[in-house]
Amino acid sequence: MSMKLYVNNQNFIAGMTLKNGAELENNNMALHVCENSNHVVENRKLLAAFLKCGLDAFICANQTHSANFQRVTAADSGRGAKQQDTAIANTDALYTYEPHLLLCSFSADCVPVIFYNEFEGLIGVIHSGWQGTVKEITLKLFEHLKHTEHCQLNNLHVQIGAALSQEKFEVDEDVYMKFKQLGYADDFMYYNEQTNKYHIDNQQTVKKQCELAGIPPEQITIDRTCTYLHPNGFSYRQDKQTGRHLSFIMRKK
């Protein structure tokens, strides 16, 4: 099973699967973009075996580049694990306080966000492509956790996973303006006069959203691996017919 682990301690395990030519469909983990759904399920079974859980621990969403999030519980166990139509609809972030649930987020250039709170047992995943970033899904979820769930955000640890680098995230003025209108992304953008394109650092913009919510910068880690440039990366921008990484977190107890 090809992956990188970001966290593995007595309470939490979190990581991101990687593209691997030796696996079925290059270790694609997404049912919505596959040649054969059985291949994806087999890949997920390998991950489950490594994590010492069953597929019924997986909770997946049908991601739509929204700013929608959902609290999940054991009642949601297995949703989207073996077939797409049972996944949580129209949702791009999941969180829970319950153990033994594997929260899943799929990406191929978009920014995956994984978070946990040691003291409260809270875990979560966020899928933030550029549309999710300009809709401020990360900031909105953390504000919800603060005000509705009464979560102490200064105790949160955040891992921002591998994504499209600023060098390769090349956009026209319409997308640039959406980021500019956020009011805090200017430091994470530049203009290339040769190509008349703007380059945006989506990971740093998401990190800024975490900081604006009240998460201490030293508790935010970024994996700067570029999904376009790295051979283990799935990149939608490079190849529209591509698989997806699975970013995940589970509370062990």
Rank of each mutant, 00 (worst) to 15 (best):
3 M>P: 06
8 N>E: 15
9 N>M: 04
12 F>P: 00
13 I>C: 06
16 M>Q: 15
16 M>A: 13
17 T>H: 04
17 T>R: 05
17 T>I: 04
18 L>D: 08
21 G>S: 15
22 A>V: 11
23 E>C: 12
24 L>Y: 04
24 L>M: 06
25 E>H: 03
31 L>P: 01
32 H>Q: 10
37 S>R: 09
43 N>S: 11
44 R>V: 10
49 A>N: 15
55 L>E: 07
57 A>D: 04
60 C>K: 03
61 A>S: 15
65 H>E: 12
79 R>A: 15
83 Q>H: 11
91 T>M: 02
93 A>M: 10
95 Y>D: 06
100 H>V: 07
105 S>M: 14
110 C>Y: 08
112 P>G: 07
114 I>Q: 02
115 F>I: 00
117 N>A: 05
130 W>F: 13
133 T>I: 03
136 E>P: 11
139 L>Q: 09
142 F>S: 03
146 K>W: 08
149 E>Q: 15
150 H>A: 10
157 H>P: 07
161 G>C: 01
166 Q>Y: 02
172 D>L: 14
178 K>E: 14
184 Y>F: 03
186 D>G: 11
193 E>W: 12
195 T>M: 08
195 T>G: 09
200 I>T: 04
201 D>L: 01
202 N>P: 04
204 Q>E: 14
206 V>M: 05
208 K>T: 06
216 P>D: 08
220 I>L: 06
221 T>W: 13
228 Y>K: 08
228 Y>R: 04
234 F>C: 11
239 D>T: 14
245 H>F: 05
251 R>F: 05
253 K>D: 15
